Simulated assay, not measured.
Amino acid sequence: MLSPKSAGTVRATLPAVAGALGEITSRFYTGLFTAHPELQRDLFNRGNQAVGSQQQALAGAVAGFATALLEHPDERPDAMLSRIAHKHASLGITAEQYEVVHHHLFAAIVDVLGEAVTEEVAAAWDEVYWLMARALIALEARLYEEAGREAGDVWLPCRVVARHTETADVTTFVVRPLGDRPVPAARPGQYVSVRVALPDGARQIRQYSISGFPEDALQFSVKRVAGDPAGEVSGHLHTAVEVGDELVVSVPFGDVTLADDDSPVLLASAGIGCTPMIGMLDHLAATGAQRRIVVVHADRSESTHAFRSELEQLVGKLPGAEAHVWYEHPEGPHPADRTGLADLSRITVPAGTTAYLCGPLPFLRSARAQLLAAGVPASAVHYEVFGPDLWQGAED
């Protein structure tokens, strides 16, 4: 994929570029938002920008892609690219925007590395960028085509037809497209983007997992993000959006989806990571699945466990399902061996299991390590991260 000349140059300069990527990405976003303030206002997550997680994710993606080109020159890192492509499609990214990114990214590289960026070095890293960009453009074009949408045109004006309080900080919204627009198809495990108009005029976008499959509607669940900065979109949805209001929602995207076969499946989550898992479980129950199903969930307590009763009901409908729930601080009688942090080494994982994980990074790392120790192949462990994916190399 990478030309021999460029491969040698990238290999020689990768340590220096990787070491400076933090500063490069910071200057990239500064330059990008100075020239295009509308992108910061209406496209990029301002909360992630404020804490630096978006910069870390971009740096990790660039370094990871370059490393993959060098270590596996005849392969394309499709797992990483697919995840990025789905996120981009959910935001309505178009091919023209890659030119804008290229301009400001390379300006930042030259600004940080100075004279070290010779013509040869610039050409080699330009090749890396466009290999990655063109692969993403092609993947995103296919996603738009599969969704039956023009490139970038992913938005549906919807009306909120139901709203349910799950816990003190988790609310479920059920929306239906306005007019005669059909409800877009969704696969268990996918998410939708929600675009809201905030008081300062910004139109910020966030992704929320599909947590169920009501007839003729889309259902997603939102945890109100506390802290500094607090979640401005989740806060707005919780306090300002009621039944009857309009919301702009994307068609569903996401590459971590439930395989449609009869093999055993393990759904492991922590906290709000339960939302895509309860959607998968809802689908399994609705289709009368006979496969072995192991559900693992970890939470702080019973009162913070969203979809607690739904989990019990859905598992009860599935003859091959079992559930294991851990609480760090149980509020009532709870088994001692299910108190504290989730420990997947304490459960029996059926042979041939495909595992799906969702939750905070420490949980994902621990759960994955325990599954690998139990003999589950790395290729059979899939994970979803809410927000920028900072878990580089998780699928090695």
Rank of each mutant, 00 (worst) to 15 (best):
S26W: 01
Q54I: 14
I24D: 03
P15M: 09
E38G: 11
Q40E: 15
L21P: 00
V51F: 13
Q49M: 14
R27C: 05
G22K: 02
Y29L: 03
F44K: 01
T25Q: 07
Q40V: 03
T34F: 06
F33V: 05
Y29P: 01
G22A: 09
P37Q: 10
A59M: 06
L43M: 10
S26T: 14
T25H: 07
A20Y: 08
F28H: 02
E23A: 15
L39K: 03
L32H: 02
G19N: 10
N48M: 08
G52P: 03
R41Y: 07
A18N: 12
R27D: 12
T34C: 03
P15T: 14
Q54K: 05
H36D: 05
Q49L: 11
P37D: 10
A57W: 07
A61I: 11
Q49D: 08
V51K: 06
A50I: 06
G22L: 08
P15K: 07
Q40A: 14
Q49I: 07
F33M: 02
F28E: 11
R27M: 11
Q54C: 09
S53F: 04
A57P: 00
A16V: 14
V51I: 15
A50F: 11
E23T: 15
F44A: 06
G60T: 01
D42Q: 02
R27F: 11
G60L: 14
N45K: 05
D42N: 15
A59C: 08
N48T: 09
E23Q: 14
D42F: 01
E23I: 12
S53N: 14
P15I: 11
V51H: 09
G47M: 11
G60F: 04
V62L: 15
Y29V: 04
G19Y: 11
L43C: 05
G47Y: 06
F28W: 07
A61Y: 01
G31W: 01
A59T: 05
T25R: 02
P37T: 11
F44N: 04
A35W: 03
H36G: 02
A59E: 04
A50C: 07
N45T: 08
A20V: 09
